[in-house]
């Protein structure tokens, strides 16, 4: 069944249409959240919150974008809200722990924790989200601005500063690791 048809049925309250939509988009959503949060537990939790929110707000989905884009937008909003609620210092410490957790998960699967991933994990989550949305998922600055609820100019400067920080980290490869960029 096509996505549009599924969305139409979901709007009428069809349970199986909802579960088919979620089943089809869950891997993409979870992988996006893993990259942004750098924490498998937090990513799973946010993915479930996103699905719950989309169930509640399905009548607001206008079908102009893909359903997956809408889910990514909701999850980004939830992630940013969650982050803003915490105090800056606590958030930074948690970020460090998240990076270490993910590194442990990668190590246990005998996968390399590269310098680029390490540099990304040290960025502030706002910068990381902006870079991932722009350069990995290919969204425009305007679209990212809407998702992060900031101006396109702010997104542009976050992407630029984030890339500069990652480049510096990569240039310093092998030297003493630096403190995170906030």
């Amino acid at each position: 069944m096509e996505e549009k048809e599924l969305v139409k049925k979901a709007k009428q309250g069809d349970h199986s249409a909802f579960s088919m939509l979620f089943r089809g988009n869950y891997p993409l959503l979870l992988k996006y959240l893993l990259k942004v949060t750098m924490n498998p537990d937090a990513a799973e939790e946010l993915a479930q919150e996103t699905m719950a929110k989309s169930l509640e707000k399905i009548h607001l989905f206008n079908g102009k974008s893909k359903f997956s884009t809408w889910l990514i937008s909701i999850s980004t909003n939830l992630f940013i809200d969650q982050h803003r609620k915490r105090k800056r210092e606590i958030a930074w410490r948690e970020q460090e722990t998240d990076g270490r957790k993910l590194k442990w998960h990668m190590d246990s699967r005998r996968e390399e924790w590269s310098d680029a991933l390490s540099a990304l994990s040290r960025l502030s989550s706002e910068m990381r989200a902006a870079i991932i949305l722009k350069h990995y998922y290919g969204y425009s600055y305007d679209e990212i601005g809407e998702m992060l609820r900031v101006s396109p100019g702010t997104v542009k400067s976050r992407v630029h500063n984030g890339l500069t920080a990652v480049r510096k980290e990569l240039d310093h490869d092998g030297k003493e690791p630096k403190k995170g960029v906030n």
Partner: peptide, 23 residues
């Protein structure tokens, strides 16, 4: 900058292939 973006993309593509969480 282009080089950094390419490195990040390559690493994130590799990251996506690892099943850290099951569906």
């Amino acid at each position: 900058v282009t080089g950094t973006v390419e490195t990040i993309k390559k690493e994130l593509e590799r990251f996506d292939t690892i099943d850290l969480v099951k569906t």
